Simulated scan of single mutants.
Amino acid sequence: MAKQPTIEEVAALAGVSRGTASRVINDAPYVSAAARAAVQRAVKELGYVPNQAARSLVTRRHDAVALVASEWDERLFYDPFFAEVVLGVNSALAESDLDLVLVVGTTERQRERFASRLRARAYDGLMLLSLHGVELLHSLVLASGVPAVFCGRPLGATPAHYVDSDNRGGARLAAEHLVGLGRRRIATITGSLDKQVGVDRHAGFADGLLAAGLSPSLVAEGNFSEASGAAAMASLLDAHPDLDAVFVAGDSMAVGALGVLRARGHSVPGDVAVVGFDDLPRAALTSPPMTTVRQEVRGLGAELARTLLGLMRGEEVQSLILPTSLVIRDSA
C-alpha cells in the first residue's frame, strides 16, 4: 500500500509554510491566490487526502446535515410518507459533498443527545419534520444558531424558514368534491391535531362543508397511521351509520378506513365515498383505487434540502408553500 503523503510534503512541494498549506487544504480564508493555487497543485500531484477530523477543527464544518424527526420509530420506517420525503432530500443532496444523518428525537434521552451534538456544532444544517406542538426540539434548534428549515410548520409557531404544502386548500378541494357528488352526511378522519398539518386539513374540510351549508361535525381523530384510520372509521360508523362520505386526512389512514368499510359490507363509493390526502404510490393500488389530494411528497423533501443548501450558502431564501391538487379515481 502506498504511503499517504503528509501535509509537510505538500507544503514543501508548494513552497509555503505548513500553516498556509493547512489553511488551503481546510478551505480557510485569508490565503493569497498564488499560495492557494500552489498548494492545490501539490495536493493533486501528491494525491494528498485531507484528514476530515482536522478539517473540521479548522473550518468548524462537518459536511453533515441532519434530518430530525420527532416521531415513533415504527411509523418513521413504515409510513410511505417519510420514505418519500427522505428520497426527495437525498436526491437534492446528491450533487453536494454533504452526508445526510437521520436523527430521531422521540425520547428524552434522544433529545438530550441531540442537544449535546447541537452544542458541539456536529451538524452544518438541520431539516426538521413531524414536530408535535411547539416542542423542545424547536426551541433547541432556534437557540443553536445552526441553519434550519422546517418541513411543515410547528403548531402555534411560524419558523423563519419552512417548506409546506397547501394542506388547508387541498382539504377544501376534497370537501367540495364530495359535496359536488351529492353527498350530504360527510365525515372526516383527521390527522394528529397536535400537528399543524392535522389542524390545517381539518380546517380546510370545515371550510368546504360550511360553504355548502353543511355541518362539519362528524369528526374522528387519527394519527396518520393505518391502524388509527381503521379505528376512527369504526367509531364513525358506530356513531353515524348513515354517513355517505368520508374525507380522510392521510392516505395511510384511508387504507385502514377502506378495510373497515369493506369488512362491514359497505360498498365504496356506492354507500360511502372516500377521499384521502397525499397521493402516495399505494393510493392507486387500493380497492377501489383511491381519489385523493396530491401533494408532491418527494418534491417536498427535495425543496426542503434545496432551501437548506441555499441558507447554508448565505443566500436569501424564501419559505415555500407547494400547491396541492385533486386526483380523481374510483373511490369518490
Rank of each mutant, 00 (worst) to 15 (best):
L67Q: 04
P323C: 12
V104E: 13
G208T: 01
A38H: 07
A94H: 12
R185D: 13
G105Q: 03
A64I: 11
V16G: 02
A212S: 10
S331Y: 05
A206L: 02
E71H: 02
D244E: 12
D238L: 09
A83P: 00
A203Q: 15
Q4S: 14
I186A: 07
E71M: 10
V65W: 08
E176G: 01
L218T: 02
N223A: 09
A174T: 06
D242W: 02
A21N: 00
G169N: 10
M290S: 08
L67C: 09
P288S: 10
V255W: 02
V141I: 12
E108G: 11
L98E: 11
Q40F: 00
G250Y: 00
G204Y: 02
G169Y: 10
E8C: 00
L210D: 10
V43G: 02
L308P: 06
S217H: 14
V163N: 04
P289Y: 06
R201S: 09
A28Y: 03
I186Y: 11
S32G: 03
G88W: 04
L140P: 02
H202Y: 13
P289L: 05
V275W: 03
L76P: 01
A157M: 13
F77D: 03
Q110A: 15
G125L: 08
E316P: 07
F205C: 03
L178G: 09
S217E: 15
L140Q: 15
Q196W: 08
H132A: 11
D279G: 07
P5G: 06
Y123H: 12
F205D: 01
A34I: 05
A83V: 07
T286A: 12
S325W: 07
A239M: 08
E45C: 01
L76R: 03
R298L: 08
R60G: 15
R18K: 15
S192R: 03
A273V: 02
